Amino acid sequence: MLLTTAAAVVVFLDSDTPAGFIEGLTGKPTSAWMKEFGSLSREIIVDAFATEEPTEDKVNDSPDPTREELACRSAEKFLTAVTRAILEKETDELVRLGMEDGELVGALDARADFYAACFNDGDVKRVGFTPDDTFPIPRNSFPGRAQKPIRKEGEEDPPEWIVTIENINVTSPNWVQEDQRTRQWKGNDASRRDCYFVIEDAEFWRLVKRKDLQVEVWDTLKVQWAYRVVDGKAKQRRVLRVLEFNGAKLATPLPPDAINAILGGHSSAAGSRAEPSLFEGW
């Protein structure tokens, strides 16, 4: 779980999010954060192969942190810095950093919900985000911070996620989990249309790394996946759970509550379609 959190932070840093946005929020450029995450393995290797005898002080110290702990600490530092900045900075400054555009606007919505909750609680007089006993944000600023950003004309919320269970014939797999962002899996759905997708099922990737799957020339998957319909076509396909691999059962479908925790909301559709659907061009 800790490594998954750290990996998610690395993916975020390596995404198309503007570097100026990261530096504006945290005070450190993206390159500095990436360097910190990239140094984890080097630090571990150096410690593991150190030949010097431990001093008495080191013997009495607590054990060296594991890889998971190091990854968690770095992820914690980054997430704390970003979260604090979003909650602490003035709204105008966040807008100048570009948070009103794209999916980043969701962070402003969450910020507004936080300050609305603070305002609705009469016991909350001021707010602060450091270990010190200082609370620089006064109650009279809560209403302004509780205002959600106005959507630009023509801008709409992204389409709702639709979740189905379907069978896929894989035509071009990608067995490197970290490379899915640049090269997705390719296959044919139940209607024999080409489809591209990523697999987010952590248990499936654990089986891959353990080489516990019987891979064939033409693999088949039964998956529980989510997608959004944009302009009549399914987009952003995400495999949430691989249920079967080449006929071998791997897992049971995720329940609705678990799906909502991942997607933030969804609707369900019927299972695999044997006949062509209205969504031509999938």
Rank of each mutant, 00 (worst) to 15 (best):
G154L: 04
G154S: 00
E155A: 07
E156V: 01
E156P: 04
D157V: 04
D157C: 00
P158C: 06
P159W: 11
P159F: 12
E160F: 03
W161H: 09
I162W: 08
I162Y: 03
T164M: 13
T164S: 12
T164H: 04
I165R: 14
I165D: 12
N167R: 13
I168H: 05
N169H: 11
N169W: 11
V170P: 08
T171S: 15
S172R: 14
S172A: 15
S172L: 09
P173V: 12
N174M: 11
W175H: 14
W175G: 09
W175V: 05
V176F: 14
V176S: 11
V176H: 13
V176M: 11
Q177Y: 08
E178H: 05
Q180S: 00
Q180G: 04
T182F: 10
T182I: 08
R183G: 01
R183Q: 08
W185F: 14
K186Q: 12
G187F: 02
G187N: 01
G187Y: 04
G187H: 08
G187D: 05
N188K: 14
N188T: 06
R192E: 14
R192D: 12
R193C: 04
R193F: 06
D194N: 01
D194T: 01
C195N: 01
Y196F: 10
F197N: 02
F197H: 01
F197Q: 06
V198D: 09
E200A: 07
E200F: 00
D201P: 00
D201V: 04
A202I: 03
W205S: 08
W205C: 02
L207S: 00
L207I: 02
V208M: 12
K209M: 08
K209Q: 14
R210M: 07
R210A: 10
K211Q: 14
K211L: 07
K211H: 10
D212N: 01
L213C: 05
Q214M: 09
Q214C: 08
Q214W: 06
Q214K: 15
E216S: 15
E216W: 10
V217E: 15
W218P: 01
D219T: 08
D219I: 09
T220D: 15
T220W: 13
T220F: 14
T220M: 12
T220V: 05
V223I: 12
V223K: 02
Q224H: 01
Q224A: 15
W225Y: 10
W225F: 08
A226P: 00
A226I: 06
Y227K: 07
R228Y: 02
R228K: 12
V230T: 09
G232A: 06
G232K: 10
K233T: 07
K233D: 01
A234P: 01
A234F: 04
K235H: 02
Q236D: 13
Q236V: 02
R237N: 07
R238M: 06
R241P: 02
V242N: 00
L243W: 07
L243R: 03
E244Q: 05
E244I: 02
F245H: 10
F245T: 02
N246L: 11
G247P: 04
G247R: 12
A248P: 00
A248F: 01
K249N: 04
K249G: 06
K249C: 03
K249V: 11
